[in-house]
Amino acid sequence: MWKILLIGLMAVYISGCDFPTESMDKKFGEQNFNSAISLIELHKVRNGSYPQRLDELEFLGDWDAIWLSSVDYKKTKTGYNLFVTKGWMSEPELELSVRFKQGLGIEESNIIWVND
């Protein structure tokens, strides 16, 4: 009984806390975006073309399901579009260097590309 009461009190306490979700959304969002690009580009190197869908990617780890559910991917004629839909809790607003996408097949994204 005490355990249930303690867990309930902790849940109420945590729910009242103001966690810095915006910074966590950015950290997780950037990690989700980078992980997706890494495996999408690796697929192209191995197979000669980008995958039609993300479920075609091979050799995924247990944690890869996190980013798979946090991005929207669409293959295009000459590359792909990739949108981050979730960071920690919600869709993050990310800024990355324009140099990051150099040499990649990414065409459209919700990333804000900035010059260094």
Results as ranks from 00 to 15, higher is better:
Met1Trp: 09
Met1Thr: 08
Trp2Phe: 10
Lys3Gln: 13
Lys3His: 08
Leu5Thr: 13
Leu6Ile: 12
Ile7Met: 13
Gly8Asn: 11
Gly8Glu: 10
Leu9Val: 09
Met10Leu: 15
Ala11Pro: 00
Tyr13Phe: 15
Ile14Gln: 05
Cys17Leu: 12
Cys17Ile: 05
Cys17Glu: 06
Asp18Glu: 13
Asp18Pro: 01
Phe19Ala: 08
Thr21Asp: 03
Ser23Leu: 04
Met24Asp: 01
Lys26Arg: 10
Lys26Met: 02
Lys27Phe: 05
Phe28Asn: 00
Phe28Asp: 00
Phe28Trp: 02
Asn32Ala: 09
Asn34Leu: 15
Asn34Glu: 09
Ala36Glu: 00
Ala36Tyr: 01
Leu39Val: 04
Ile40Trp: 02
Ile40Ala: 00
Ile40Cys: 03
His43Tyr: 15
His43Lys: 06
Arg46Met: 08
Arg46Trp: 04
Gln52Asp: 14
Gln52Lys: 10
Leu60Trp: 05
Gly61Gln: 13
Asp62Glu: 13
Trp63Cys: 07
Ala65Asp: 13
Ile66Phe: 09
Ser69Lys: 14
Ser69Val: 07
Ser69Cys: 11
Ser70Gly: 07
Val71Lys: 01
Lys74Asp: 07
Lys75Val: 06
Thr78Lys: 14
Gly79Arg: 03
Tyr80Ile: 06
Asn81Glu: 14
Asn81Met: 08
Leu82Glu: 02
Phe83Ala: 04
Val84Pro: 01
Val84Ile: 15
Thr85Asp: 09
Thr85Val: 13
Thr85Lys: 11
Gly87Ala: 04
Trp88Asp: 07
Trp88Met: 12
Trp88Ser: 09
Met89Leu: 14
Met89Gly: 08
Met89Gln: 14
Met89His: 12
Glu91Cys: 11
Leu94Ala: 07
Leu96His: 06
Leu96Trp: 09
Ser97Ile: 03
Val98His: 10
Val98Phe: 08
Arg99Pro: 02
Phe100Met: 11
Gly103Phe: 05
Leu104Ile: 13
Leu104Asn: 09
Leu104His: 08
Leu104Val: 09
Ile106Asn: 01
Glu107Asn: 07
Ser109Val: 11
Ile112Leu: 14
Ile112Cys: 11
Ile112Phe: 14
Trp113Ile: 06
Asn115Gly: 13
Asp116Pro: 15
